[in-house]
Simulated assay, not measured.
Amino acid sequence: MFRTALIAGALLMSGTAFAEAETVEVNGMKMYYEVSGEGEPLVVLHGAYMNIPSMGAIIPKLAETHKVYAIEFQGHGRTTDIDRPITYPNLADDVAAFMDAVKLEKADVFGYSMGAAAGLQLAIRHPDKVNKLAAASVGYDSEGWQPEFKAFIPQMTVEMFVGMPFAEDYRKLAANPDGFPDLVKKLIQLEKEPMAWEPDVKALKTPVLVIAGDADVATLEHTVALFRLLGGGAMGDMGKPLSPSRLAILPATSHTAVINQTELLEAFIEPFLKGETPKGMFP
């Protein structure tokens, strides 16, 4: 999942395909979103400090086969901030309220980093809203982060982020160009929020595609444990159906490199959403 300073060098601003831009009232904020493409609905959720453009080419790619609803979270991009902490349950509830506001009863969801964790909470808190969830760079317990990142969290300060390049990018889109320090405070606190979702994840009925880099912010062991909680990891070819959930590991891929691998992401996400599986020797 995104994790603060790790994302700084990877926020490459790139345009998306033609999209209809809108705002809608959601839980006291004006939420900005874009709709593009045709097909089954797919809600796309960005990472922390990101926005729709910084998600890069994956949104227009997915819009070739889906009607994509890409949103910008509280205080991010063009969505206004409100006097409320940024937490994963809050973000999930915002997505559910957004779907109600645009009359989207149920949809597939693709989230990256913070957006993936919000998507996981959406499936936990509002299971009737989510058909399938593709979650890239996500975890379910803060104990699963790499040791280096766990050691870095207590050192985070607002000053550390306000001089980074994406701080200036924030000003170009933000409803409040001077609101970046307040956003940073909330996102640093988000890193410190308790995160221990194992019972809720284990109870999920929603199919989940777990995507991670082999050098991601969560350890490989944690990512595999997440997949097993979702019912994955059993041997195939033994007469039992495969788990509806799936696992994909991108080689030579750090956390911030995950979202830029458009072709690989699309190759994993599309078959999952369509329910396609590779054919083996046995039926």
Rank of each mutant, 00 (worst) to 15 (best):
P271V: 12
T223I: 15
G144E: 08
G213E: 07
K106M: 09
P251R: 06
E143K: 14
E25Y: 00
T256C: 01
K205N: 11
L242F: 02
L62C: 01
N260A: 14
L133H: 05
T223D: 01
Y140C: 06
V102W: 08
K202W: 01
A174V: 04
G236T: 14
V224R: 10
D141T: 00
M29R: 06
K61P: 00
L42C: 07
A257Q: 15
K205T: 14
S54F: 14
P165Q: 05
N260C: 01
P154I: 11
D83I: 11
H46F: 12
Y170N: 07
M31L: 15
Y112C: 08
V109I: 13
M235V: 04
L42Y: 10
G75Y: 05
K186F: 01
D200I: 00
L242P: 00
N90G: 15
L204S: 04
A203R: 13
P244G: 05
P278E: 06
H255M: 06
V224M: 05
A134C: 15
S254H: 11
G236R: 05
E34S: 06
E270M: 11
M55K: 08
A215Y: 05
G163H: 07
L173K: 07
H255I: 04
D128S: 13
M31K: 07
G179P: 03
A118E: 12
T23H: 15
A70N: 10
A101S: 13
L265W: 09
A174D: 02
P199E: 05
N27L: 12
G77P: 07
A63G: 06
H255D: 09
I211R: 04
G111W: 10
K202S: 13
I269G: 03
K192R: 12
V224S: 00
L264Y: 01
S137M: 05
L204Y: 07
P207L: 06
P53C: 09
K185M: 03
M1T: 10
M50G: 13
I269H: 03
E263K: 11
D94R: 02
